[in-house]
Design a protein around this nucleic acid. Structure first.
Lengths: 329, 329
DNA sequence: CTGAAAGCGCTTACAG
DNA sequence: CTGAAAGCGCTTACAG
């Protein structure tokens, strides 16, 4: 194709290449001729050939377990935005399980593709497994909900521990004597939330009840709420969707929120503010997490120096679903 | 790199290439030697070189305006799943606006990258603009919420018109005399919903009230609800999130749902079933839409013959947010 | 069954 | 400022 342009413009391949890359001086006349030819032929360089000769590419790969759930999708959006702004195209590789097939695929996606770097959304154990299997041909940066020491790859973090801690403190300060936790599936992210909850209870020298396990969705929250022991007055949920199910289950049993039980969510999804009752929750800025993660990757690609970790903060959003515990009967 | 393997195994480049591609007979002994060398060197073929020589690639590109909102994200997930199952890697190109920069980028992403084909999530005008600008170097399939005639590219459809129609019929059959519509931003998808609503009203020879415009999010639904005229008894919303905001706005004015006003959502997002009241809504299977879209693309890539359009169906999910209108005061 | 050689579409020293 | 040539890492006729 380059050859077509060269012929049309009456110059050599090299010259066309020079005006396309724009790095080396070309006379104005020649440049104009070439540009005209490019336009007439609506020529587009072949990315594969460029990648081959340059040894580098302008694509980055995002490795993730999921693309639909709020935390993942919002983080993905943040990464994509930042990558696009920096002129990179993005590939996405989904690792559905830690099975060797999926893992190999994901690892290959960074090893065999001509990519400039990769980011892994390290929110769960499957992504963590991929991360562990990634050996450094290109820069790889990860993001996660909980600060972990001794990671092989640089990380951008959200502070889920702080989030869980603040939420639990909030409930305690309202006068609740016990705060229950309904967990989303474990992995780094959930782990941090639970850990913050536990720490707040321990610091307050208050009993730490058994964790009730849910999945990510509202229905699992609904079912988990049934497994809550009697006498509960406050519950922190692993995410807002679970909280929705919990509130509904409570209401169905004739228990008002927050009159009978206080409920706190996690994430501050868009619907949280408009729920009835509006959900008290912990806001995590996943999009910013994505921005930070990509910024680290870009810096690494550009300068060759491994970036430092980055940490975000969680903020408490108090709305209508929490209140002091009901007076003892 | 191939050369390293060849040297290590004591064979020619061609032989290594043959065992890698597996298409041409190689003696068992040679194959074993090569495979051993591949393993020892943990050799991975360079995708750029392969793409260059093969002229084809195993990546498909997804072009979309958004990756976070429910309809887009669920469709994206469906496409990705199907692509992965078929052995394709996926790139994603986000077109944030119809501005020429964004448009050019998106078009280039299919023109310059070595891709096997592309799918565009044609839910809005910006994606439609990209679609219109795509001229056929590789197969391109689109998906959309409303059947449109005379499309240049094959489409997989959701039947939003049917969905809007069914929802409106449901409200009418409950005894409502007027059904209002709160629209999400227009573009193909929203357009179909509105069209179905309008058709149901016209068929019933009932007045068609003015459309109230919202955005995609709950807050915009909340605000839109304030612009509803007095005396409303039934409202169909462009999506579930808007419905959430509408319910809340109504409640804040002391109007019960469904006691005072019936509200219907659209999409059946996971939270809809656990809402209070549980949301009556129209289920659209976006994930299946993604599967169908990719299947069409794959067929086109494999057989070279342009696929036929595919149409899905919308189903009505009746829950708690709809009821007969209140008795006249 | 296996090897030597050409070629995929570019970029970039190296000469002029 | 511009061109001829080599080379990026593979695959695939073409000979043997």
């Amino acid at each position: 194709m380059l050859a077509d342009v060269a012929e049309r413009a009456g110059v050599s391949l090299a010259t066309v290449s020079r005006v396309m890359t724009g790095r080396i001086p070309v006379s104005a006349r020649t440049r104009a001729r070439v540009e005209a030819a490019v336009a007439e032929l609506s020529y587009r360089p072949n990315a594969a050939a460029q990648a081959l000769v340059n040894g580098t590419s302008t694509v980055v790969s995002i490795i993730t377990k999921n693309t639909l759930r709020w935390g993942y999708a919002a983080t993905l959006q943040g990464i994509e935005e930042a990558a696009r702004a920096a002129g990179y195209a993005v590939m996405i590789a989904v690792v559905e399980s830690a099975g060797s097939v999926d893992l190999t695929r994901a690892v290959d996606s960074v090893a065999t593709r001509a990519i400039a770097g990769a980011v892994v959304i390290d929110f769960d154990e499957d992504s963590a497994a991929v991360l562990a299997a990634l050996h450094g041909s290109v820069p790889v940066v990860a993001c996660s909900g909980m600060v972990k020491q001794g990671q092989r790859h640089p990380h951008a973090y959200l502070d889920d521990v702080e989030g869980g801690f603040k939420a639990t403190r909030h409930l305690l300060s309202l006068g609740h004597e016990v705060v229950h936790y309904i967990a989303i599936p474990s992995g780094a992210e959930a782990g941090g939330r639970e850990r913050g909850w536990r720490r707040a209870l321990e610091e307050a020298r208050v009993p730490v009840p058994e964790v009730v396990q849910a999945d990510y969705d509202p229905l699992s929250g609904f079912e988990a709420a049934r497994r809550l022991p009697p006498g509960v007055t406050a519950v922190l949920c692993g995410n807002d969707e679970v909280a929705i199910g919990v509130v509904r289950a409570l209401n169905d049993r004739g228990i008002a929120v927050p009159g009978g039980v206080s409920v706190v969510g996690f994430d501050d999804q868009p619907f949280a503010a408009l729920w009835s009752p509006a959900l008290t929750t912990v806001r995590q800025d996943f999009r910013d997490l994505g921005h930070r993660t990509f910024a680290m990757l870009e810096q690494w690609i550009d300068t060759g120096v491994r970036p430092n970790d980055s940490v975000g903060t969680a903020s408490m959003i108090v709305r209508e679903s929490t209140a002091p515990p009901p007076a003892r009967g």
